[in-house]
Write a protein that binds this DNA or RNA. Structure first.
Lengths: 327, 327
DNA sequence: GCACGGCCCGTGAACGTTCACGGGAACGTT
DNA sequence: AACGTTCCCGTGAACGTTCACGGGCCGTGC
């Protein structure tokens, strides 16, 4: 690792001072066209690249955001990340992406280093707020898809009660009376989406007794629906925790000889682009994932400056039913 | 924006010197347990976070890589990005991701700023090497999926001739004689994959005359196959530029009443995970996308240190046929 | 002839942290 | 009593850049 080329090396090579080199390379003006060219040539000749650290130290302008997600290959997080990247690019900000590989330990590890690398952090975290706080040591943070309990944090809420209600309304209107659900198997307690579904069912006076759980994968959805239908053969429709599981359910239905949506209606959650490539296209309670990412970045920006924070009601993304083909 | 809390503020609050604060916060040792705790408390009290710029200036250890891709929502790039993130995490490196939104102007814009933010850059670029060079001003760079012409750059090659040959062999063995192709419509000249296909076809003495082009989307694939089959109804198999287009082709076949693979075999390229969620699962000439990302990061690391670069033959990812259900 | 303004360039200082070094106090050893 | 060790802590310097300021030179106007 040879010695670094500094601005002084360029200055010496061009026969001028530091400041003149700085002026030439930053289009500052107050410099003769001839010497400017001479400096530029010298810089290129020596392979000079300014140190981002030295530059960042004196001008406090560049902002870098950390984006922490459990798994970039999960299409939901991909879409959120894309939204965040777009919003950041519009502001000229930089985004360092951390994939925690669905591991709590990896999450801890990244949190440890993220605090010293970015100006604010945004993302999906699984740790509780107390531990987050100790790891982040005061770093501004925006939690996505999860309520914050302490004023220490800010968060982007996902509100799906109305959307799920819409979905059940839709199924009910189509004549469905036996509707099951495939919940997420990853946590101990039932999900909030499960609660939304229960509310919508009881609102219609329907029995809410056919519920299975699926792990987070297409295969998980396939297995889960197969099991659920074995237990409850009379089901004519099923609502799933998310689109990935729904796509697995689609496959299970086909393998069981049930055509969708005639023999079995399927409604997912998230509204991923992925739902449009399968056949039949997936009906889903859709989230504006791009907006989730955008909001998170926006709020992070507010935290970074003295600008007023986004009001609570804007920090919410509402899911709406998108009817495609599967229901 | 209130004044920044510096290490001196903490030192003053704790009644010690800079250095002692530094020792306490970095677990350096040579410090009394009591004062260490006192410093930590004072730091937390004041909300002190060390400046990454000042720190980076003096210890030259943290490395940051820029990853430039045209579109994170394109599953191929998502997988490459995931591979790169994983490799970077294993090394303790940070990755700033830039999505150029499939726009050459955006690519120019990011190249302009990327040089001053990262230690090396890796990714898919559409600009020619000359322009890349002027924008990057000496920044180490690894080009993915594209040959480098000048020693200025390094690159990761994608070699698919053998894999495509495998695919055609497979189709031939299954009795297919009329095999078409859907090439990429985005560029003026035919793609290299088109050439690989042509070679494989002539090797079997088959006519290579049924070729259409598709834009980069599922819908594009659907339209393109519909058109191709209208022109060449006798086709019994089709090879596509990539999996996205293939999935569109799958849908077109179904709409035309052709069951896959019996009435029409479909073979894609890339081997995306996405190909396993559609039905029938997509047979594809598969790339190890994770390895593409990993290699790029590895080579970037070599460029950054004095370690010897990866030999040419290792900088290549070979596609192999993965037979699933569609052919 | 002199003052003044514009153009071009250089010098000290500052940004906030870590490194290298030195030094005092307490303790034990001879 | 003198000396060496260990433990703990502080001070100058350095990292590489930009900012604020000052100053020389040349041309212009009165």
């Amino acid at each position: 690792m040879s010695k670094r080329v500094t601005i002084n090396d360029v200055a010496q090579a061009a026969g001028v001072s530091r400041q003149t080199v700085s002026r030439a390379l930053n289009d500052k003006g107050e410099i003769d066209a001839g010497t400017k060219q001479r400096v530029i040539d010298a810089a290129r000749e020596l392979g000079y690249r300014p140190s981002r650290f030295a530059r960042g130290l004196v001008r406090q302008d560049t902002t870098t955001i950390g984006l922490v997600i459990p798994d970039l290959l999960n299409p939901f997080f991909t879409e959120v990340a894309a939204g965040a990247l777009e919003a950041a690019r519009a502001r000229g900000w930089h985004v360092i992406v951390y994939d925690t590989a669905d591991s709590v330990d990896t999450e801890r590890g990244t949190l440890e280093v993220v605090a010293s690398q970015v100006d604010a952090v945004v993302g999906y975290f699984s740790l509780d707020e107390a531990e987050l706080d100790t790891h982040l040591s005061g770093l501004p943070a925006v939690l996505i898809g999860r309520e914050h309990r302490t004023p220490r944090f800010s968060s982007i809420r996902i509100e799906g009660a109305a959307g799920v209600r819409e979905a059940v309304d839709h199924l009910f209107a189509k004549g469905h009376r036996r509707i099951g659900m495939l919940d997420y198997a990853g946590r101990a307690e039932p999900s909030i989406r499960r609660a939304w579904f229960a509310d919508a069912m009881t609102a219609h006076g329907l029995a809410d007794d056919a519920v299975g759980t699926a792990v987070q994968s297409v295969d998980g959805g396939t297995e889960a629906l197969t099991g659920l239908l074995a237990q409850h053969p009379s089901l004519t429709a099923v609502f799933t925790f998310n689109d990935i599981i729904a796509i697995g359910a689609l496959r299970a239905a086909r393998r069981l000889g049930r055509t969708v949506p005639d023999d079995l209606a399927v409604v997912g959650f998230d509204g991923l682009q992925l739902g449009t490539v399968v056949d039949p296209a997936l009906t889903s309670v859709a989230l504006d994932t791009r907006r989730v990412g955008t909001l998170a970045i926006e709020q992070a920006g507010r935290l970074l400056t003295d600008a007023p924070l986004l009001p609570d009601e804007e920090l919410q993304v509402n899911a709406v039913l998108v009817v495609r083909e599967s229901a």
